[in-house]
Write a protein that binds this DNA or RNA. Sequence first.
DNA 1: GAAACTGTACTAACACACATAGTACAGTTA
DNA 2: TAACTGTACTATGTGTGTTAGTACAGTTTC
Lengths: 130, 130
Amino acid sequence: MLYIDVMSRTPVYEQICDQIKKLVSVGLLKEGEQLPSVRSLSIELSVNPNTIQKAYGELDAMGIVTSVPGKGCFVMPGTKEKLCAHARRRLSELTELASELMAAGVSREEIIEAAMAAGSEKETADDNNN
Amino acid sequence: MLYIDVMSRTPVYEQICDQIKKLVSVGLLKEGEQLPSVRSLSIELSVNPNTIQKAYGELDAMGIVTSVPGKGCFVMPGTKEKLCAHARRRLSELTELASELMAAGVSREEIIEAAMAAGSEKETADDNNN
DNA sequence: GAAACTGTACTAACACACATAGTACAGTTA
DNA sequence: TAACTGTACTATGTGTGTTAGTACAGTTTC
């Protein structure tokens, strides 16, 4: 379900956070659904339980999940909308990246084309979504 | 000429590399032009000379600049084209980011709009460019 | 109640990258 | 010769990420 890139510069706990958020966005992880336990996921990913705990703690602090001692970690209701709103705020990153590439000499047409290329693989997940 | 964001997660030496590359792309740093010396730039940016040296070393390894002992550090000819080609290869990053945002629920229209917003500030630098 | 699970909270230690400090050497320019 | 240039090196400090190990409390199941 999750994959860790040990070569990446981004910390493992952050990779886990990002992937879980993505799974919720896409709908592969439903709201209210229970996440794998700290220990089981640590074994599955071959990382330290503390690393998983840190990831879950971050998600909890963000309001993405809620951790219930003795029971487990669950996706918070309303998370999907929250993630969508957050993604919309990240549109500025896209503009910034596009500006950077244009400053380097890439044409506006190439930029638009690259942006339009996105979502061609969206339909796959979209079936289980709406 | 250069600015260091101490709060950023990206290392100082990398910030310097990125900014110099950007200056060359935009044309504020001409090919063949001499870069500030390791020591003077270290004073200007209030960072250690070793940090500047590391940045210049990286740029040298990338073929962006060439360091001549006793003389200085100079922008390599052909760098602008090289940077443009590299930026073109980075178009996939833009597609990836756009896909990520779309997966979170952002509409294609918003994506395109954000991409089109890029370059509105380009004209400023473009005057001294071509 | 006992066992097995759940999250949580610690401390200690290690590794790595980044940055600083300081010194020294060799080449270039004036 | 003096003042600049890049380069090389060691030592040190710091912060972050990760691992290791232990312990405790709540929940579930039998």
